[in-house]
Each structure stands twice: as C-alpha cells, then as structure tokens.
Design a protein around this nucleic acid. Structure first.
Length: 855
RNA sequence: GCGGGCGUGAUGGAAUGGUAGACAUAUCGGACUUAAAAUCCGAAGGGCGCAAGCCCGUGUGGGUUCGAGUCCCACCGCCCGUACCA
C-alpha cells in the first residue's frame, strides 16, 4: 500500500486535467452554463491566505457545478493598475510595469499548484494595452451616450510636494511624505453620471434575491433616497445675487424650530464673502484644511462663523435667522445649505449650545403632560423615529398628534400650497469621479485643443498607450512632465494639441472585467454572442469590504454597457448571486523605535510563550489582536509554506474547515498538520478498502449513512456551508472506518467519499478514484445523488422538557401521534419526579422535535 | 461622526425559536512499541456530589415566548465601509 504523498500525486493529476482540457470553457449552447467568479486580486507579488480561501471557495463551487452537468466558466485575472506599483518605483527605482508583470508571474506560479479549475487561457491583467484599450473604447461610447462629463471637485493637495494625495496618503490631516498640512483644492475632473441612475440602482436592489441582505441594505443606505423640501430663505444684507439661499431639508416639519441657517465653506455665498472679509477668509481656509474624507470632516470639531447676514423665516417674518458658515456642511449634498433645528437634531443642538442660539421644541413625546415644551430639549435633542407619534406644539400643518412621516408630508403639502418651495426626492449618492493625477492607470482618451476644446480620441487610434520612458524621482504625475507624449494633433482639426494626462480610477478597470472574461481576446470590449451565452455571473465571491463601491460601480457600468450595446438587456444586473466571505486576520506584532513610532515584525520572527510574544533576542513585542492582513503591517501569512510541506489539498481542506465562510477568521497555522493527518487517514482507509473483499455485517446501515452524507454535503456546498460539509465528511469518514460492512458496500461508500471530497481535495480524490479502479477522472464524474428513502429513520429520540428544562428523553416511532407521545412523556419517571405530584398545566408536543411539559 | 456586521468551552466553531457545545484543534489517560514516531481507544463547559442527579452557563442588562445562542430594546467590545487603498 502506498503512503499519501501529495507532492507526487498533485502535479500528476493537474497534468491529467490539463491533458483532458477539463477546465477550458467553450461556448456550447446545448448545455446549461454556469459562470463562477472570484474577485480578481491585486498583484502584490505574493498570494496570501485570504486569496487561498477566496479561490478555494470559488473552486468548490466550480467543481461542484461541473459535476452537476454545467458548462462552467471559471476565469482568473489581475487588477493590475494602481498606486502600489508607483510607490514601489519611487521606493526602489524600478518601473511600475516591470514590477507589476513580475508580480503577476510570481502569483500565477503560486496559484497553479493549488489545482484550481481555472481556464488560464482567458487570463488577462487590466494593465494589458489590449484590455485598457477596450476600456478606452467603452469610455468614448459612454461619453457619446452622455454618461460622462467634467466638473470641478475637491482633492487632497499637498502644498509641499505640489501633488494630489489619495485619502490613504493623508495621515491625521498631513501628507504622508512631506508631513505638510493637506488642503482641499478644486480641480476640473471627469465624472460618470451614476447619480442619474440612483433611483434605478436603488429600486433594482430588491430583485437581487441571492445577494446578502446586509449588502443590499448597505447599498440602499449609501444611495440614500430621501424625500424633503427644497425652498429658499430671503436674505437681509447679503451681497448682490445672493438675495436668496436655497436649502434642502428632510425634516420640513421642524421648520418652526429653525434657529440658524448654515452654509458650506464652499458655498458660492461663502466664496463671495471671503473675498472681502479676511476673518471669513481665514475661517474658510481653516475649514478647508485636512483631508477630503467624510470621516475626517464629520469627526472634526463642529465650527461656525457668523456672517452677519440674516434670513427671514418664511412663516414668521419677525424671525431673523443668522447665517453661519459651518465646516460640517458638504457642498456636494443637497444645496450646500441647511437650516438648523437644534431641538430635534443632535449636531444642530451641539452647534446651538456652542454659539448660544435658541432651542425651540417643535414637538414633544405624545402623552407628555403640559409644561414648557422647550424644557424637553435643552439638554439633548429629541430625535424621534419617523414612525412614532408626537405632539406638535409648533406645527404648522396637519394634526397636532401625528407621526414624523405624516408631519413631513403635510408640511411639504402646506409649503407647496403657500408657494414656499417644493417637495423633492434627493439622493446621497454622488457622481463617480474617475480622474486620477497619476501615471499607472488607463489613460483617459481625450485631447485638449485650443480651437476645438475637449475632443475624444478616434477609436482607430486606440489604445492610447502609456509611455514607458518615465521616472518617479520627483512627486507628481510623470505624464504631465513627459517631453513628447502629450503632444498630438487634434483628432478634429489636426492642429497641435495636448492629451489629457489624467488616468482612470482603478475602480473603472474592475467594473467590467467580468464581462471581458466572456471574450477576453476580442477586438471589441465584448462579443454579443459570448456575452449572451456566458453572462450573467451566476456566483460572484469576494470580500465584504467591496460591498458598496466596487459592486455599485459594476452595477452602473453594466447598465452603461447595456445602453451602449456592449451587454445584453439581461445583464443590467451582472451578478445573479453574491457571496461575501469574511477576512483572514492575524495579530500584529509591534515594538517601538527610539522615536516611539511602531515597528512591525513578521509572525515567523515572533515566538509565543504564555500568551506573550518575544523576538529572537528576547525583546517582548506588543500583540495587537486580530487585524486585517496588510502588507504594511507585516502580518501577512504566506500559504506557500503549507503547500510545500503538506500539499495543495491540505491547504484547501484547511482553509475551508472550521470557520464559516462569511465570517472573519483569525489565522493560526496550528491546524494545518491536523488537516494533513486527516487526508492521510482517508487515503489509508480507502486504500485498505480497495484491497479488501468478502462479506460483512451492517451493509444497509453503512449505505444509509452514505446517503445521508451525500445529502448533507450537497446541501452544505449549495448553501456555502463548507465548514459544515467538512464536519460532515469527518463524521462519515469515522463511520466508514468503523464499519464492519462487506467489501462491496464499503467500496460504494468509499467512491461516494472520494466524490464528495473532490471539490475540496481534488488531487486526493483522483488518487482514491484510481485506487478503487474506477473509470475516467473523478473530476469529470457525475455528482452522486442521495436516495430520499434512505434518509429517514424509523425511530426518533425526543427530549422532554419540564418548564423548559430537559429532564428526559424517549425513543418513539417517527409518525406516532401527539396524544400517544404526550402519554409516554408524562409516564416517564424523571418527568413525574420533576412534576412532584402536580398536574401538568399544558403539554406542547412538537412532532419529531421536542416535548415541553408546563407545570 | 454616520452606515453595516459580529460576540458561544482552553481554541476554531455547531445548533429551520425546540436536548447548547456537533465536528475539529490543543490537553490528559490508555493500547501497541525496547523506546519514540505513526496509528487506535477513551475523557473533557464551570460548580456540588461516591453516584443517581442538581445548580449555573452563549459579551452586559432588560423584554417577548410553553421554550431564546437564535426575536425585540438599551449598552459594551471588536471588525468592515465612509466615495483617491484595492
């Protein structure tokens, strides 16, 4: 009998699959297709255990569907543009292109030994000119279709390095390299008109039944539909052209509690005022300091500046509301101006307290005794849920007692009837800014001409290729300072003109790669026959961190591609089912350098004793538990060691064991050896069975267990309960090992075991398949079917509770009627003892599950 | 700050509102062995008890229910996202 030797068998079976062309996806309209896709990786250079987990899950689905008769498309590529390549070039002087392609080669070399059922012939990287050229074609079609436009938007500006920074490069409001205070600065940028589709993208979420509810909810909140009132305050003492301030509010019912008007530092009125008033200019300059992230803006201390201008209240013209410039009001949302009602909004409340503004209650909780209503809201804002009834003491429309929702609707109706603004529906979703002032991205294919303006590049001139001769020794975009690349004739008039030097956001690259996989070498973005056959993605698998942006942008892009004729109608929603797997986390080991800055240590350099970590020289390290694996924190675990020591099947089995796929897992290497031992045990058990013959006892029992295992494992895989499927396979292996059944029955059970394990441990399964003398490849065999008749037991064990505490159990025939079950339960000694002579008040019998006696 | 999620033995985790801890890891005990490895068998949430058994127990505090890890409310902790990380 041979020993389990993964390093010998794995390469052999991979070659056998290749020779049989098992994973090559070929359009075949006579068979149902299944498209399974894992979110493609960024080519960092090393695969990490999170990748292994992600691709193993996808591979289980792909192999399972193939065994169930589907024509499977399971491709892989690389999300290859982006900042890390430029950072590497800056740090070590190489070229982003070289760095990226070397990394891709390394990662492919690490992924191939895993035995994934991927069609490698379809592989591409988004930095291939063949890919990004087609992306430029899509951009031009989107431009023509009115889905792209230019406008001003703010970026993080590093005034020392004179360059735009990514949010990630702004640390505590300072540039990561220069340490200078970052400013918000406006640039003209390209935008996708995703906000035009906000309502549609929101409404369509309802149809995504096979997406996690939490992802749909996150997208719903992100798109953020709100019904509100837009109206104008008339101003007093404002500069010319600003006699009105448009505001938008979702709580028009609180209008009578308004005590101030707030405008964004980027509001047109603020910009006029700062020109003549140095104090206002100073305030606005201060407010514009720091990064552009919503988090930074929201967490900053709320500050305001009284402009001296006032507004008249539309319903009580004796009221004059001061106009403040406030640092927490975003120009991007609504009209960039609000009215503040401190009594019913926590942020406004804080603001009013700080600047001594009045706090007037508009409503009080329903049922409150009369008193001074304002007393309710002096210490904290009263923010009542919209569906709860309240008593309006300063209402101006509708009943005195009404819910927030009713009050809002009646307030809008009243305002419209009285010519004070109108009800509008707004969305929180902003347009998608795609311009990046960076080299390593897809060039935006337009030309700026002095005579013709912005001119699209001609499609026959695509791809607009990135120049190779660039350097990264100074900050800024190398395309901007390239001596010749910018200079091109205008595609329209032929006069000298300049290329756009902005490149595209890498989210654009990942917003249509799934469609490109259906025809990866075509000289158009997609080919309709292929898209018709292979789309949609039947199962998409990736990290929860992409729940909003990537998935929302992809949904937008699919719509855009449908409008521009690159995808069929059915692909508006490109992902039929989504599964979001949890992240793999690992403790961070850190010490501090002389300046108190953290120094991170690799897990393999740290020895753990009694829950404390020590370096080789004995220094104790601080352990930060459970953080997302990140290259910059040195807490990435390399799976190659496991693959080299134990083989791919052990790594695959191990990453699927124990943890539910959707949950985060804390990585420990302790279980890898145990997984290897188990596979060795399966190998030994099945090898022995293959060599055995003769009769035994308990054939029927073993086959019943086999059918139950087939049923449970099949259900486990279909519901992404891979850990449960594996636990079931452990159980079935134990049953098989202990069984005294005859050789024929055991061989039948062993065959089923090999097949059920095949999606997880494909190499081992092929070996078992061959050892059992079975024809062909296990990977090509039809999935086993459970016999329903073998799944039900004749006798069930029922626990008996008295007052919810388990006191006994009885074995009864599975279809015994309730009255008889009740009788037997009450007759039980332990039940009688628990009742202590008292008569039961009530007996609940749940057939097949439980009996509860209420004393 | 805001939006979303998670929290169960020493550890990973299981459990359509129905016996909490399946399955596995680590640990301990035993068999086999000259010995070890490998393998096989067994124990094991905490407490009390010779035992039968009893009490407690799913982050904390309330609630709904015949019955709550599961549903509801509040809180604590951690994770993800927050529009230029991918």
């Amino acid at each position: 009998m041979t020993r389990y030797a993964p390093n010998e068998i794995e390469a052999k079976w991979q070659k056998a699959w290749d020779d049989a062309g098992l994973f090559k996806a070929v359009r075949d309209t006579s068979r149902p297709k299944y498209y399974v896709l894992e979110m493609f990786p960024y080519p960092s250079g090393r695969i990490h255990i999170g990748h292994v987990r992600n691709y193993t899950m996808g591979d289980v689905v792909a192999r399972f569907k193939a065994a169930n008769g589907f024509n499977v498309l399971h491709p892989m590529g690389f999300d290859a543009f982006g900042m890390p390549a430029e950072n590497a070039a800056m740090a070590s002087g190489g070229h982003p292109k070289e760095w990226t392609y070397n990394n891709i080669d390394d990662m492919v070399a690490q992924m191939k030994p895993m035995g994934f059922s991927l069609d490698w012939e379809r592989m591409f990287a988004t930095c291939d000119p063949e890919y990004y050229g087609q992306q430029q074609a899509l951009f031009l079609d989107f431009l023509e279709a009115g889905l792209v436009y230019r406008k001003n938007a703010v970026v993080n500006w590093d005034p020392v390095d004179m360059t735009v920074l990514a949010n990630e490069q702004v640390i505590d409001g300072k540039g990561w390299r220069s340490g200078a205070d970052v400013e918000r600065r406006e640039l003209t940028q390209w935008f996708f008109k995703i906000s035009d589709m906000a309502g549609e993208l929101l409404d369509a979420l309802e149809g995504l039944e096979n997406w996690p509810a939490k992802v749909r909810l996150m997208q719903e909140n992100w798109i953020g539909r709100s019904r509100g009132l837009q109206f104008a305050f008339s101003t007093v003492d404002a500069p010319d052209g600003h006699d009105r301030i448009e505001v938008y509010t979702t709580r028009p019912d609180t209008l009578m509690g308004a005590s101030f008007v707030g405008i964004s530092p980027d509001h047109p009125l603020a910009k006029v005022l700062e020109r003549d008033n140095p104090d206002i200019a100073a305030f606005c300059a201060e407010a514009r300091k720091g990064g552009t992230t919503a988090e930074a803006i929201e967490k900053a201390e709320k500050l305001g500046f009284d402009t001296g201008i006032t507004c008249r209240h539309p319903f009580d013209t004796s009221l004059e509301l001061p106009v403040y410039i406030a640092n927490f009001i975003l120009m991007d949302y609504g009209t960039g101006a609000i009215f503040g009602c401190p009594a019913h909004d926590e942020r406004d409340h804080e603001f009013a307290k700080k600047y001594g503004l009045p706090i007037k209650a508009v409503f009080v909780p329903e049922g409150e005794l009369p008193g001074d209503p304002d007393d309710f809201v002096q210490d904290a804002a009263l923010v009542a849920p919209k569906d709860v009834e309240a008593r309006y003491v300063l209402g101006f429309a509708g009943e005195e007692i009404q819910t927030g929702t009713q009050a809002i609707e009646t307030a809008i109706d009243f305002c419209e009837a009285n010519g004070v603004g109108q009800g509008v529906t707004k969305y929180r979703l902003r347009d998608w800014g795609l311009s990046r002032q960076r080299y390593w991205g897809c060039p935006i294919p337009v030309v700026h001409c002095d005579s013709c303006g912005v001119v699209p590049e001609k499609k026959e001139n695509l791809p607009v290729q990135l120049p190779d001769d660039v350097s990264f020794d100074v900050p800024g975009n190398p395309l901007d300072r390239h001596p010749t690349w910018r200079d091109v004739p205008c595609p329209n008039c032929g006069k000298p003109a300049q290329r756009e030097t902005d490149t595209m956001d890498t989210f654009v690259d990942s917003s249509w790669y799934f469609a490109r996989f259906t025809a990866p070498r075509a000289d158009t973005p997609t080919v309709m026959e292929d898209a018709e056959y292979w789309m949609n993605v039947d199962q998409y698998i990736g990290g929860i961190e992409h729940a909003i942006l990537h998935l929302l942008y992809s949904r937008f892009f699919a719509r855009g591609m449908q409008i521009t004729g690159h995808l069929p109608e059915k692909s508006k929603e490109p992902f039929n089912a989504l599964f979001t797997q949890g992240m793999v986390t690992h403790a961070i080991f850190q010490t501090r350098d002389a300046n108190g800055r953290p120094v991170y240590h690799y897990p393999e350099d740290v020895e753990l004793r009694d829950g404390k970590g020590f370096l080789k020289d004995g220094t104790e390290v601080e352990i930060i538990p459970s953080a997302k694996m990140s290259k910059s924190k040195n807490n990435v675990v390399d799976p190659m060691q496991i693959i080299e020591s134990y083989g791919a099947d052990t790594a695959r089995w191990f990453v699927l064991s124990d943890s539910p796929p959707e949950r985060d897992v804390e990585w420990t290497a302790a279980g890898a050896e145990a997984a290897f031992k188990h596979l060795g045990r399966v190998h030994r058990i099945v090898s022995e069975i293959a060599a055995s013959d003769g009769d035994g006892t308990g054939d029927e029992e073993l086959l019943r267990e086999m059918h139950k295992a087939i049923h449970d494992v099949t259900m486990g895989i279909e519901s992404f309960g891979f850990n449960a499927a594996i636990a079931r396979l452990y159980g079935f292996t134990n049953t098989l090992a202990k069984s005294k059944a005859g050789a024929a029955a055991k061989k039948q059970a062993a065959k089923a075991l090999a097949q059920l394990m095949q999606p997880m441990t494909p190499h081992l399964s092929e070996d078992l398949w061959a050892a059992l003398g079975l024809e062909g490849l296990c990977a090509a065999a039809d999935w086993p079917k459970a016999d329903e008749a073998m799944l039900v037991d004749d006798v069930v064990t029922l626990p008996i509770q008295v007052n919810g505490k388990r006191r006994a159990e009885i074995d009864v025939p599975k279809d015994m009627d309730k009255a008889e079950v009740e009788k037997r339960a009450l007759a039980h000694d332990a039940v009688q003892r628990a009742l202590d002579g008292a008569a039961p008040k009530k007996v609940i019998v749940v057939p097949g599950r439980i009996v509860n006696v209420v004393a």
